[in-house]
Nucleic acid binder design. Structure first.
Lengths: 343, 343
DNA sequence: CTGAAAGCGCTTACAG
DNA sequence: CTGAAAGCGCTTACAG
């Protein structure tokens, strides 16, 4: 049924090993033979069986993607489509295909990664999130398996290769931007607190306040799950304070949508009564009302670079030494902070 | 290096074939032996090599996902994260893992599918879009390979298994809904015209108009790429008509965002001066200003059901007979059409 | 209930 | 430059 290397060999009058070498485009095969074999492959419609190949040469040409568990609704964030697009592009350029974990719970995801790695299904793994106490990263590290994290890992980050935005810097810049616009009462709405992004961005926010001589008020710092609903809750809490803020740094465009929609319901105008700045510059940032001022972090680039590092790591046999790549960011000014509204 | 079935066999004092049977949980192995073998597997940290297994038993326990080519920005639509979540959930329940195509151009995607199928990388394929003149579906059909389409396929759809929303009906209902609210001048803004969804939804729209005795005006029907920017263009065209519409059916929440943002810029209020209804009920529908009235199509369910059908198809050896599953939809009323605003 | 042996479709030293 | 042979780690009739 399946056309095998033997069939091609017979058709082309060579040994199977020769066909194999033609597939690998070995320089030790004459041009004529190559042509003859290739013609036979075309005629017969030959495609190599990937499993036979993987089994024999102990490589899979596949990359595993570790998504956050589907239980947390994090996955709904368009962030992921976009990183995957970056990963996919680079992977395709280098002839790698993509494997995804399918677990719903955290435990299932972990099990998926283990069997992916131990079962030799992939040559390397990219982890699409970064969280405290994550078993997956620990496991990958212990197995000495090639992997890269998108986001800044916690444990032992000096030995882990990762690709990230300088979220600390971005948080700082954005806060200073609001201060420059004249705001003194600046709040911070962050996502899940065990995520690295959240911690970095809030860290930058605090530093900026200190540098500007504004006291840090813990009641101004609220956190909520990463999605839009979280944003809504957060706002209500902030607006019920004795001295509500006049500006808010929101850790993610999705949450910012929730924030603005809640403000809208409460009759609080953006940017006039409340300035909003956020991160990621998802495509929806452009189409919210008012359009969001947001930090462009080049999500595609994060995925692309991560894959680049991973492939490097796969190709060197050396133990991964913990490379870090920082993808540049910049602020895209739209209307949600006021200021120059015709950006 | 890798722990193999032989190591386990030695440790447990049985033959490799017995270990293999324990893995498959064959009823022909005694309970005692099973326990002994399982203990040996645990001790040694054994995980089966997926490629050896696939090669020997000609099954992969993997499902291939065909995404639209990354070139069209369609992928940015959160629709995809959500179908994948559905697919992933069902796949995981049945012990399947997920493979993704990585092509950027249409041609690359096609090549990816071919080698996925011919290289026996997956047991079946789910196609995540439906378009006229699609080589992929044609190929899958010709190869008699198990596959399912999300969306209504064109060619020979009687022999293709697919899972879809009744987009025709939904388009009709939504148009009638606007008419009931008192609108007579109702426009339609659709996505790419070669997509099945677009055609079905506009078909329902036209039928509704006819049934309500409203003449169909071709100038009221505009189409644009699926993304938000497309929505903006469409609006400008509509509003420059001599008799601009008072209501618009938009084929997708993303586009609706673009539509509303453009209306906002033009100083046209939603819903007072223009009613907007759309489809898919993405999470952002809830957080736009005003919140969108949209048709909930249960995207997760589409993915889940598609995978269900696919697995059925893989397990029966019979030639696929072209099953169709329609996932129910319903209108979620929010503020963008006026009416009961406290829904 | 268990084992020995052949085979899945490749690759890769080893020879020549 | 090419071939014969062993091997990758499993599964599965076939025997017993």
């Amino acid at each position: 049924m399946q056309v095998t290397i033997k069939d091609v060999a017979r058709e082309a009058n060579v040994a199977p090993s020769t066909v194999s070498r033609v597939i690998a485009n070995s320089s030790r095969i004459s041009q004529k033979t190559k042509e003859r074999v290739r013609q036979a492959m075309d005629e017969l419609g030959y495609y190599p069986n990937v499993h036979a190949r993987s089994l024999a040469n102990r490589t899979t040409q596949a990359i595993g993607l570790v998504m956050p568990s589907a239980a947390t609704k994090t996955l709904q964030n368009p962030f992921f489509s976009e990183v995957i697009r970056g990963i996919s592009t680079k992977a395709h350029q280098n002839g790698y295909s993509l494997y995804m974990t399918t677990g719903v719970s955290e435990e299932e995801v972990y099990e998926g990664v283990v069997s992916m790695v131990q079962g030799r299904r992939v040559d390397g793994v990219v982890v699409l999130y970064s969280r405290t106490d994550d078993k997956v990263v620990q496991f990958l590290q212990d197995s000495k398996f090639p992997f890269v994290v998108v986001g800044k890992p916690f444990s032992d980050s000096s030995h882990v290769t990762y690709v990230d935005t300088d979220n600390y810097l971005a948080g700082r810049e954005v806060t200073k931007y609001l201060h420059q616009l004249g705001h003194e009462c600046i709040a911070f709405v962050g996502g899940a607190q065990d995520l690295a992004v959240t911690q970095e961005r809030v860290g930058g926010y605090k530093t900026a306040l200190m540098e500007e001589g504004i006291p840090i008020q813990e009641s101004y710092i609220v956190s909520a799950p990463f999605m839009t609903t979280g944003g809504a809750e957060a706002v209500k809490r902030l607006m019920s304070l004795e001295h509500p803020p006049t500006a808010v740094v929101v850790s993610d465009d999705m949450m910012a949508l929730g924030v603005m929609s809640t403000l809208n319901e409460m009759g609080i105008g953006v940017p006039d009564q409340m300035a909003v700045v956020s991160f990621n510059n998802l495509f929806i940032a452009e189409f919210s009302s008012p359009p969001l001022t947001s930090v462009e972090i080049n999500i595609f680039g994060l995925g692309f670079e991560a894959t680049n590092c991973l492939i490097e790591q796969i190709n060197e046999d050396a133990t991964p030494y913990g490379k870090r790549v920082i993808v540049p960011h910049y602020l895209v000014v739209r209307q949600s902070c006021g200021g120059k509204s015709e950006a």
